[in-house]
């Protein structure tokens, strides 16, 4: 399987953050002069210690808060259903069946279930849970709940998916499996991803761009490209390339911690 994705430097621009600054309660600087251009097809990881503003950056892009200074521009403007989000918790509605949870983004746009039934079932099929469409969240394992959350984020075929440490609470086996599946999904859907993590290995395995951030004040200190081809499989996880990228990212992260302390 070959993946149709333009080389890193030739991708059209999707979203641009320019000179973003966010200050809380007048004096806590969560983000300082952040510049980031997200291109179509990018898988970007925001990597950094806690307090470096990576979640704040995500919330700004999601439109959940406004920057104190600076602008975030979508090329061609942001349309309905352009954005999907996955949080650290699965964040499912416990009273709703799996299929109704996945229906939610459409439901809030006034679409009846029957109008979008195919899309909902397709999304569930992509995450391998179509036989659980009538189950309630409490009947699912942690990993399965996260898959439902991913299906919900992808159901509208958004241009951009934001993921805030989605697999941090999972065990390592589930986490590796979900990492593999996420890459396959992203190929199937063809969306752009911004992925917040504090795991060097996860960021190297998943992304083609890693943005390393430092804390106090939150800022970008390094950007590095992981120029390894997709699809990435279990072999990549144990390859020399992978180790080299991990080393590079790890050094950058250490640098981020040092400047922070």
């Amino acid at each position: 399987m070959t993946v149709n994705r333009a080389p890193l430097r030739e991708r059209p621009e999707l979203l641009k953050m320019s000179h973003i600054e966010k200050t809380f309660r007048g004096d806590v600087v969560a983000l300082k002069d952040m510049n980031l251009t997200v291109n179509q097809g990018d898988f970007i990881s925001l990597l950094g210690p806690s307090g470096c503003g990576k979640s704040t950056a995500l919330r700004l892009v999601a439109g959940l808060m406004r920057p104190t200074n600076g602008v975030i521009e979508w090329s061609g403007g942001q349309g309905e259903g352009d954005l999907g989000v996955v949080f650290q918790e699965p964040t499912l509605m416990p009273w709703a069946k799996v299929k109704d949870n996945v229906w939610l983004p459409y439901r809030l746009r006034g679409k009846s279930y029957f109008e979008v039934k195919d899309e909902v079932l397709q999304a569930l099929k992509l995450v391998g849970l179509e036989q659980f469409q009538n189950a309630y969240p409490r009947e699912l394992s942690g990993g399965m709940k996260m898959r439902v959350a991913i299906a919900r984020a992808m159901v509208t075929k958004p241009r951009l998916i934001l993921m805030d440490e989605p697999f941090a609470a999972l065990d390592e086996i589930s986490r590796h499996k979900l990492n593999n599946d996420l890459l396959a999904l992203r190929d199937a859907v063809g969306c752009t991803v911004i992925f917040v993590t504090h795991s060097v290995f996860e960021s190297v395995f998943l992304s083609d761009r890693i943005v390393v951030m430092a804390a106090r004040p939150g800022r970008v200190i390094r950007e590095l490209n992981v120029e390894a081809p997709y699809p990435r499989t279990e072999e990549f996880r144990t390859s020399a390339d992978y180790a080299a990228f991990a080393r590079e990212a790890s050094d950058a992260l250490h640098q981020a911690m040092e400047v922070a302390v």
Partner: peptide, 25 residues
């Protein structure tokens, strides 16, 4: 759930939808 609140905000839920589909259940 605060994350569900955020999700409803991101998906542009109206006040009524928020009450009907989130707060009430």
């Amino acid at each position: 759930d605060h994350n569900l609140e955020d999700l409803f905000t991101i998906y542009g839920a109206t006040r009524w939808q928020r009450l009907r589909y989130l707060s009430a259940p």
